[in-house]
Nucleic acid binder design. Structure first.
Length: 290
DNA sequence: AACCAGGGAAGAT
DNA sequence: ATCTTCCATGGT
């Protein structure tokens, strides 16, 4: 068992982060203790549970990270830093939006970080499974999927492996109320990953546009899912999913419109948000969460 | 009971 | 290339 303390130089709203992570019933969050337990695989394939607990007060928390095996200390610390994006300076992000039409939004919700999904495959499957579904039912499906084919260890759920999903029949997923289409998308994409036709790890090094062009060719992955993977899977800074219903509703509310904005209207509204559009997206989503 | 949901494919211009 | 229509399933 080891522990390490990390102190940030940036504002960082960890309590909101916990609230967001808590939306996923499979993530082990304790909001009172201000702690989350993360399932993570090291490079050699070993599974670990890493806990992250906030000690200092928001907006400048101090984190205490802990896990069992000392051998993996350095690797797991780096993974946590990558997932939670502790090296990104959110003060710079907030300052970028001063003078833009989102100034008030960022005043209202400062220090909203990008927190990456814990695993690249998880992130892509979650995107497909959640397409066009309300959040509640989306997480119901995700939960059934993970509880059936994932791995539970020491209080945390590890996401299913693509190899395990590639073996399934469409009916296996239909039984848990996946639509036929969604079952095909999830299983076929997993098979392509297993066969090496898609390599998420090597894709992760490419520029945004190239990744989108590659992913969109896969049946079941459209622009929304590709952008979602860039934002939550890779933690890229400059994504604004204009077709996302949540973004549209948030813009409608924030700009006091009587209807949702069209995509060309959003293109006008987002002038000046680059290179931090992802933070605009996250903060917009956040603004309409209860 | 109709409309919505953190879309996408397939078909029609 | 861009626009419609259909798909599927639960939530409000």
């Amino acid at each position: 068992m080891w522990k390490e303390t990390v102190k940030l130089d940036t504002i960082y709203d960890f309590d909101y982060t916990l609230k967001r992570l808590e939306m996923d019933p499979l993530i082990n969050v304790d909001r009172d203790q201000r702690r989350v337990a993360i399932p993570i695989k090291s490079g050699d394939g070993e599974r670990h549970k890493v806990t992250v607990e906030a000690k200092g007060s928001t907006p400048h928390p101090v984190f205490e990270i802990a896990a069992d095996s000392v051998d993996y200390r350095k690797e797991l610390l780096k993974k946590m830093s990558d997932l939670f994006q502790w090296e990104k300076d959110l003060t710079v992000v907030s300052e970028h939006f001063i003078g833009t039409n989102l100034q008030q939004l960022f005043y209202a919700h400062p220090g909203t970080p990008i927190v990456r999904d814990f695993d690249l495959y998880f992130s892509l499957m979650k995107g497909i499974i959640h397409q066009q579904l309300n959040m509640k039912f989306a997480y119901t499906l995700s939960t059934r999927f993970v509880e059936a084919y994932g791995f539970f260890m020491d209080g945390v759920w590890f996401y299913p492996e693509p190899e395990d999903i590639a073996r399934l029949s469409y009916d296996d997923l239909r039984k848990m109320q996946f639509s036929q289409r969604k079952a095909e998308y999830v299983i076929d994409t997993s098979r392509k990953i297993v066969e090496g036709e898609i390599d998420l790890v090597s894709l992760a090094d490419k520029p945004d546009k190239e990744i989108i062009d590659t992913l969109v060719k896969i049946r079941g992955i459209g622009p929304w899912t590709a952008e979602n993977w860039l934002l939550f899977g890779l933690g890229r800074d400059d994504l604004l999913p204009k077709a996302d219903i949540g973004i549209q509703n948030a813009l409608k509310f924030y700009f006091d419109m009587d209807r949702k904005p069209t995509i060309p209207e959003i293109t006008n509204l987002c002038d000046g948000w680059t290179p931090f559009q992802s933070y605009a997206s996250l903060t917009l989503w956040r603004s309409i969460e209860s």
